[in-house]
Every structure is written in structure tokens, then in C-alpha cells.
Design a binder for these strands. Sequence first.
DNA 1: AAACCTGTTTACTATAACTAAACGACTAAG
DNA 2: CTTAGTCGTTTAGTTATAGTAAACAGGTTT
Lengths: 265, 265
Amino acid sequence: MEKANNPVKAVETTVRIVEALKRLDGATVTELADHLDLTKGTAHNHVSTLEQHRFVVKEEGRYELSLRFLIFGEYVRNEDILYQVGEPEIRELVEETGEIVHLSTEQHGLSMKLCKLLGEDAVGERFHAVKLQRPDYLHYTATGKAILAFLPRSRVERIVDEYGLAELTDNTITDRAALFDELEATRERGYSLNDQEEVEGIRAVGAPVRDGTGRVLGAVSVSGPVSRMREERFRDALPEKVTNTTSVIEANINLTESIDRSGVE
Amino acid sequence: MEKANNPVKAVETTVRIVEALKRLDGATVTELADHLDLTKGTAHNHVSTLEQHRFVVKEEGRYELSLRFLIFGEYVRNEDILYQVGEPEIRELVEETGEIVHLSTEQHGLSMKLCKLLGEDAVGERFHAVKLQRPDYLHYTATGKAILAFLPRSRVERIVDEYGLAELTDNTITDRAALFDELEATRERGYSLNDQEEVEGIRAVGAPVRDGTGRVLGAVSVSGPVSRMREERFRDALPEKVTNTTSVIEANINLTESIDRSGVE
DNA sequence: AAACCTGTTTACTATAACTAAACGACTAAG
DNA sequence: CTTAGTCGTTTAGTTATAGTAAACAGGTTT
């Protein structure tokens, strides 16, 4: 993790304001000043600068984050090659399995969801895209462990140094050595298993997506209640389906990239 | 439009950098410095500050916007009451009509899409959510005209002052008086019509969504090729369907808000 | 090796981001 | 109608800091 030696303080306060506007679901100048220990003048200057640039809207006397964040966010996602080629494939996977399917990538040592689909067994209807909440730590999700398994050990070390190994359930891996053993096993299997390590009663199977050079681009996972994730399905059937999906994604990414390299229009 | 009297210059350069990272699909420090007429040192300080706060990632030597923008963007959309109650309704509308359906709102005098769905006549499959690109001006879209029709005249004046009336097709309204006539007609009808004013060959029908106080929260529209938007359907059937949808949305919003006010859990 | 790219760091200075206080606009209370 | 209490915004003034320019370090390419 780079640690900006000459951080721009004014940018840092603006970031704090943006984060506070999210946390507080919008705020007045006075509220921002109180929460962030700024003067009203400073808070006002920042928030009005952000408003002028359309990242903030003033709605009925309160300042709120604007939909410009959505435009930027969708742009970022649409640029991501993993999302471009992965999204249609995980649509198929969600139809096949009926469970919850994730497509995630790693940024800053955290798991960022690109897409989350609920299958018909997970909800009433056919399938359903859902909100992408906060990022997750990598060590307790199926996608996260699939990613960690194929990152250079030094990166994994630094990530664990930075974020630690928070315990969410009895099954969460909280020991460094145990984590590296698990990652080794994951590498050998080619897929990751999550047995109620994030949420009690939920199991998941994940597999990495790697490019031609072996670099991990992200991972795909299928999650569901233990009641539907018993031995055979959890150990064989789903791993097979998930790795099939990631193989197709990997093939299509390599295809796309070699076409890019050949300069074909 | 508020015009920040004490803009924070450092924030403005950071905004320029963020916009450039989008425009250039990621950039190096040197590229940013060149494009934005900054020194490399300045560009580096800003971009590394943004990276430290996870709004930017360094991917293979290039700086790119991170998926944190998506998290913020989805948060903003999910907070929007119009999206919350409108999204399920326009799903129904897209199934009924088979055309393209939009749910949009106004921010900073521009039309911001909350959701865009393609119906089965518009694409092969059942229906499909698509990317929300840049904002649009309000005067040449069905949703935009529905919104403008129910904004206070003074606001409309200021919006036209700021952005003008850009001409996209022969049918685009580019005359101020003509626009106000059109908005008057829209108010009387209760819905807006767009007859190839944005794109040649595309017609659309839109209707506003207003809250209990009469304030416009946004608008819904159905768009399609002229070949499927002939007289009866364009003038009667679709306006009926669209206004039915907006009525349901309005009712649900009022219900939600009165429940909120009553403090029920 | 040397020249030429990078990205990053440094030392310096003018600038501009803060502080604190006051202002004008509202609302509520007396 | 006054007064006191909000609020957001603006002002003046000072100190911190953002930006400059230059040098540095790490890679390629020549």
C-alpha cells in the first residue's frame, strides 16, 4: 500500500467530507463541521466546491452526494475487462445453480464486488442483481481466498499486515500460518471453499480468474445455505460448475486481449 | 446554480484529475501533468493522495479510478426514494411495453438516469439493465421535458440560461418560447412526448413523478422506433401506461413518506 | 555506459486554506 | 414588534501548505 509522502491536506478534508456525507446520509454545513471538527467556513468552502463540480447536490437545505458518483462508478465497472466478459458468464452460472453468485476483484487489499446475482432458490423470482455494499476483507470469503491463493506471497503478507485477520464466525481463519496452509490447499485444488467463515450457515465455492500471464484478475463464487450445500454438491458439483465458468471467462479474456494486441478493428 | 465564492483550489485540481482519469481511461503522472498543465510533482501529490484514500488504484504503472466510485454511486442511487419505489414499477412497465424504459431525475439542471431497461422488443432477451452513460440536457428527452414542465418557471429559465438549447435533430426545440409552449402543453396533458427530438427515428413518452407537495422527483419514459410508435400507441396507449406507472410510484412514495412521518417501524 | 524515459522526493516561496468573527436571513419566543 | 437563537455564507487576516522547479532514483532503450 503506497503511503503518499506529500498528501494534499485539502483533498483529505474533502475526502472526509464525502465520506461523512455518505455515513450521515447527507448533512448540513454545521453538522459536517461538528462531526469532522472543522469550522463552518471550511466545511462550507469544501462542500460548495464539490457542489459546483456536481459531486454534491443541495436538496432542501441539506448537502448530499450526487448521482455523478454513479456515472463514475458505472464507468469504472464497465471498463473492467473482468466485468465485461465475466458478467454474461455469471448470469449463466446463476441460472444453472439457482444460488447467489459473486464476481469480485481485489483493490487495495480488499474484495470489491463487480456484480452479485441472486438465483431463483435464493429469492422468489428468476434472478436479481443486488446492491453492492461495502468492500470485504479477503480472508473470509470464497472469492477473497481464491484471489489471495494466486497473489504473490509478499503481497498477501502485506495485506494481512495492514488489515489483520478479523474473526466473523468460529470458522474464520484468524491464524496467519493457517491462512497460508489454506491458500496452498486452494492452489492445489484450483478452487476455494468457504465453510461458514463469513456467516454462520452459509457455504461458498470460489475460483480465481487469471489472465495469460497468470495474474489474478478476480474471482467467481457461488454461495448458499448449508442445507443446500451438502457434501457432494459442495465438494464436487459446484466446484466443477464454478471452475467451468472461470475457464470460459479466462479463455474469453485471453481471446479479447490477443485480438487487442493484433490491432483488429 | 450556486457558484462557490471561496472554491478550494486544491479540490478543483483533484476534480480535474479525477475527470481526466475517466476521460483518458487511466493515466500516468506525466500524462496527467501534460493534459492538465500541472507539474509532475503536483499531479503526483494529488493522485497519490487519492490512491491512499482508495479512490484511485495503480494498475501496472497506470493510475485508474477505483471501484470505490461504484460503491458510492450505488449508495447514492439506493438512497433515492424515486429509485427505491420506482425500480420495481418500471420493471413491470418494460415487460408490458417491450420497449426501452427510463427512470430519471434532475440534478444541477441535467437529466440523470437512475435506471434504464431494455424490453424484449428492444433486445433479444427478456429484459436487460444497461449502462448509464453521461447526463443529458433536459430539453430534448421525454423525461427531461416531463421534469421541466413541473419545475418553477424561474428554475427553468436559469437552467436554459446555463446550458442553452443544443440542437440534436431537426425536431429539437431550440427556441425558448417554443420550449415554454411545449412545457405548457405537457402540463395540460400530464405527460410529455418526444418526437425524434434527441435521435432521428426514436419517439418517446414520458411522465413526471411528483411528491405530495407537488415537487417533481423525476420522470419515467418509454422509448422506441417510430415504426412501433405510430399514432394510436404513441398518442394514447403508451401515455396511459406511463401515467399509470407514475401514479403507482407517486402513491407508493406518498405512502412511504407518511409512514416515515408517523414514525412506525 | 550513457542518454532518456519514468515516478518520486526535496527545498523553497507565494499562495491559498484555514481561523475566527461577523453578517444577513429565518424561525421561534417573549 | 422585538429579541434571541438558529442557520449558511462571507469577510479579513495569518499561517500552513500547495505548487514550483529541480534533483533523484529506478527502468528501458540506445
